[in-house]
Design a protein around this nucleic acid. Structure first.
Length: 274
DNA sequence: ATCGGTACCTGCACGC
DNA sequence: TGCGTGCAGGTACCGA
């Protein structure tokens, strides 16, 4: 029997998943970081000793999400920024294992960072890193007018534009495909050439798919960081993502797969027009 | 400024 | 059975 979190349906952390993780560790606000250990040079940006020194003794003042980044705000204007990459997890339970790359010892409890592929990144410093400040607007906050104005400047394929975190922050490969399908837009369409009516549809589709996904994740937030971290997380039903060859849920035509920006891209030839 | 392509990394599926 | 190969995709970085 297929498992809900098998290889064929991986939970890649995009905006809704990161939001779920951020909420699941919100309870840490108010606690103090006693000490921190970093054991993977690839995952930590900067010097491990410096990062540990910067963190030691600081109290957690707030936890928020910016796109796919988790920002843990600390005393004195410092911040602990975590990006989960492809396979990163923040865990409040369990014991250090092979892929544990950071351990944050709190005045009560322990927070661990685990990441088999080491695509994730942890950054400690004063204020926010430039890469976080320079992100585009939140997709759930950006107005249709700004969304349209930004899109008008983009001559790339719409799928690439959606993946660009400078355009809007938080959309990844799965939700880009799903939003384009819901908007009836072909992934190879040129961003700037989309007519206002279609831009409006796309904006609404992005909001819809992300909102639904957050709601699904939100129903099992307390479970998320348990055990393998994925149990109980129900993804939004994919209508095109990884459904190559299967019938379109609207017209029945087989879903096609191609590459855009070196990413697997799934769409319906009949329902999605350039 | 923007675009497309590539590297990084591990583990799973597949074929011989 | 066991091993090599291909593939998955987040961001950073490169040249154009």
């Amino acid at each position: 029997m297929a498992m809900t979190f098998c290889w064929m349906c991986p939970i890649v952390p995009e905006l809704p998943e990161v939001e779920t993780v951020a909420r699941s560790i919100a309870r840490l606000v108010g606690r103090r970081i006693v000490s921190a250990e970093f054991t993977c040079a690839r995952v930590l940006r900067g010097n491990a000793d410096q990062a540990s020194a910067d963190l030691a003794g600081r109290r957690i003042r707030g936890i928020e999400r910016r796109g796919k980044f988790i920002v843990i705000k600390l005393d004195g204007g410092y911040s602990l920024v975590v990006h989960l990459g492809m396979t990163g997890k923040l865990l409040l339970t369990g014991t250090p294992a092979r892929h544990t790359h950071a351990i944050f010892n709190l005045d009560r409890g322990v927070l661990r960072y685990e990441d088999p592929r080491q695509f994730g990144k942890i950054e400690v410093g004063f204020g926010l890193p430039a890469r976080v400040e320079e992100l585009g607007p939140e997709p759930l906050e950006v107005t249709l007018a700004e969304f349209g104005a930004r899109l008008k400047r983009r001559k790339a394929r719409i799928k690439s534009v959606l993946l660009d975190q400078h355009f809007i922050r938080g959309v990844g490969n799965i939700y880009a495909d799903e939003a384009l399908f819901r908007a009836g837009i072909h992934p190879l369409a040129i961003g700037a050439r989309l007519r206002p009516e279609r831009v409006k549809k796309l904006h609404a589709a992005v909001v819809e798919v992300l909102t639904q996904a957050i709601e699904k994740g939100g129903s099992s937030i307390s479970d998320y960081v348990d055990a393998e971290g994925r149990r109980g997380f129900f993804q939004v039903e994919h209508r095109v993502y990884r459904r190559t060859g299967e019938p379109c849920v609207v017209c029945g035509a087989p879903i096609r797969r191609t590459l855009v920006a070196q990413r697997g891209t799934h769409f319906c030839v009949k329902c999605q027009k350039r």
